[in-house]
């Protein structure tokens, strides 16, 4: 059984190479970043803070049927630099360590750039799973979020050979959680929401299996 599976896998990889790649289905891997995760500046104009900076590792699957495409995948966004409030300008909030996984499903239009590659733009729903922690003066609160939201993507893919292309993408997602912590010591309610909105940049390469 194990051998059959391995044989099928090898055939699946090798067989398409015997045909000319139609650039129909590309599987990609990319790295990127998301600056100012949490958008702490939206807490108020007077908040003095160092924005959180996340690195992104992701995989993508893009199905092209020119001029249309569908792109999905999964991105894991991990903390590289904590978000930090430098004074008491945001109440009890002191530090953020927000991570998340986003699973988008974009549809849009490809624009062929002669024989060198494609420029593409699309939009669609995103399923976002947030985790990590938010720190107040007194406590550390673990985050667990599941959010359906909207995003859009625009990118360029350039041909390296018949099967491999490099791609660069700009993605924007708009998403905000329910309140997670209390930042007002005079109250008992939670009033600080995690804002996952913002820009992401990706750079990677894809392998066209068909």
């Amino acid at each position: 059984m194990k051998h059959k599976f391995l044989s099928a896998l090898i055939l699946a990889i090798i067989l398409p190479r015997t045909l000319h790649s139609g650039e129909y289905i590309g599987l990609g891997i990319h790295a990127g970043f998301h600056n100012d995760v949490g958008n702490m500046g939206q807490q108020g104009n007077s908040v003095i803070y160092a924005g959180q900076f996340n690195g992104i590792l992701g995989v993508s699957a893009k199905i092209d049927r020119d001029p249309l495409f569908i792109r999905t995948g999964a991105d894991r966004s991990m903390v590289l630099m904590d978000g930090e409030v430098k004074d008491n300008s945001s109440g009890e909030l002191k530090k953020t360590r927000i991570s998340y996984t986003s699973i988008p499903l974009y549809a849009g239009i490809n624009f062929r750039i002669r024989e060198r590659g494609k420029f593409y733009m699309g939009m669609g729903p995103v399923y976002l799973l947030g985790n990590g922690s938010v720190h107040t003066i007194d406590e550390k609160v673990q985050i667990r979020d599941k959010i359906y939201c909207l995003g859009f993507i625009t990118g360029v893919q350039l041909r390296v050979d018949n099967y491999i292309q490099v791609y660069a993408e700009w993605e924007y997602i708009s998403a905000r959680s329910a309140p997670k912590i209390n930042t007002d010591p005079g109250q008992t309610w939670k009033d600080y929401s995690i804002d996952y909105s913002g820009h992401r940049l990706h750079l990677g390469f894809s392998y066209f299996i068909l």
Binding site: Q42, Q43, R176, A178, T188, K190, S193, S197
Partner: peptide, 24 residues
């Protein structure tokens, strides 16, 4: 609330609040 919709959401245990999302 000084920052409008960014800070309007408040929730407390036992009270049936509903999150106010940024308009699409």
């Amino acid at each position: 609330v000084d920052n409008g919709i960014y800070g309007i959401n408040r929730s407390e245990k036992g009270k049936s609040t509903k999150n106010i999302d940024q308009p699409v």
